[in-house]
Write a protein that binds this DNA or RNA. Structure first.
Lengths: 193, 193
DNA sequence: TTACTTGATTAATGTTACAATATTCAAAAT
DNA sequence: ATTTTGAATATTGTAACATTAATCAAGTAA
């Protein structure tokens, strides 16, 4: 049929991607840089991604010291806890969670792919980029430019990234992928209120 | 004159600019970066120009980011909210998680009764005893001398403590129990490594 | 009704292409 | 011997392109 058969047609005013809806909430430019510095620069600019999976802050500032009381005890013991069941000591969150402050940064998690590891949407994880990742570690990695927090595992000679959520499939790393480990997740914090 | 008039001609084998004779002594690549970071990045890579006298130690490039620069970028104001939202990149764990330091203490959790709230065995929760507990809050309470961390709920006029794990039953509070609220759980931290 | 599908529209993003500049070589001219 | 000229080839900033992504509304299905 030689026919005008528009089916879903019509003008869409206002359609199209919105301005500054990209990774950085602003426009971008192309620049030329020395090859050996490309990955440094990419590590730097991911901090400023706003609409992506994660947003990253640095911790290389003056860390406050705020030792407060820590009570250790067994909660659902089922039986009444005698007084000696908990002991008291001082704890400072920065000291407790950060070993290498120069190499540490924070990543806010979006999504539920690590929920079985107790990492929930909107949690902040602590990443130490000075540690070398071993299997069994939860790591921040990039795969073909996408950042992800996953459990590093190995199947024979192949590395795998395992999500902690049945809804997501393991990712097997192969040579055709651009794969980079950015650091080891050493902790997580969550705010309820 | 229709003439073959080669004057200075001839093959020049080996002629041409030499490889890696550029600014950086190495090849370059084109990358795309957010506009507001271009000058940062250029300040960074200028250090690696081979003819440049300035020899800055290999210090992390992020550390060269001065508060002054940051302020500069905010002024042009061409961009609406995103820049504004992210101007505060500092994060201090103590500040982030603790509002009332005089009234705050930590409790290490043993057991899995709050696992569905993302509180796992061996986690440390942050408790603020200055906050009054409302239904929906996760609280630290003692029942007949036993400490527990649970979700505070209400069924008609009766308060209940709900565990976040199907394996455990809700606890209904009644007058015969010695019941005391010690504080509201305002956060949780976990160490993986 | 409501939700999904489709195509139109426009921005983002990574890469390639290109033009202008810079460097090097050697033949030709002086 | 020195300078001039043009060929050869790399650098470097920017433009252009193709692909992807996001958004909107009409059409379709439930």
């Amino acid at each position: 049929m030689i026919k005008n058969k528009k089916q879903h047609g019509g003008l869409r005013i206002g359609a199209g991607r919105k301005l500054h809806s990209g990774l950085y909430g602003e426009s971008t430019k192309v620049i030329r840089v020395p090859t050996s510095k490309v990955s440094d620069i990419q590590k730097y600019i991911i901090q400023f991604q706003v609409n992506n999976v994660i947003d990253v802050s640095k911790s290389n500032f003056l860390l406050t010291h705020q030792p407060l009381d820590l009570f250790e005890y067994k909660v659902p013991a089922g039986f009444p806890s005698p007084a000696e069941d908990y002991k008291e000591k001082k704890l400072d969150l920065n000291e407790y969670l950060i070993k290498q402050k120069e190499a540490t940064f924070f990543v806010r998690i979006k999504g539920d792919s690590m929920i079985d590891a107790g990492i929930h949407d909107n949690d902040i994880v602590i990443v130490d980029k000075s540690q070398t990742a071993s299997t069994g570690d939860i790591i921040l990695a990039s795969i073909d430019g996408d950042f992800t927090v996953k459990l590093l595992s190995r199947n024979k000679s192949k590395y795998q990234l395992l999500p902690a959520n049945e809804k997501y499939k393991p990712i097997e790393i192969n040579e055709s992928m651009q794969f980079e480990v950015w650091g080891v997740v050493t902790g997580a914090v969550r705010k309820f209120k």
